[in-house]
Amino acid sequence: MEIHRKQDIPWRKIEENALVVNPKTSLIYPLNPVASRIWELLDGQNNLGRITGIILKEYDIDKDTFNKDMESFILQLEEAGLIEKK
């Protein structure tokens, strides 16, 4: 399944962190470095499997914990209307 961030979502990278605005609520989500990297990788060029591979390569984190966090994060992005699925 292909997932990518919506084109018109306001966001900025601040060093390794990112700030993402939910245009529906005007709330700003400050993302930690791992979430920011995931957000960056949701550019339409990478599927979830590839993103998982890149993150596990770049960060020293437990695979099972990451998979759970990733699943929850994607669900939250979807609920907030920040990503699209194809």
Binding site: I14, P33, A35, F73, Q76
Partner: peptide
């Protein structure tokens, strides 16, 4: 959006990011 959130506003001010 809990697990991967972070507090970065102190960083924004320290780096003087003109956020607004």
């Amino acid at each position: 959006m809990s697990v991967l959130l972070d507090s970065i506003y102190a960083k924004v001010e320290a780096l003087r990011v003109p956020l607004h």
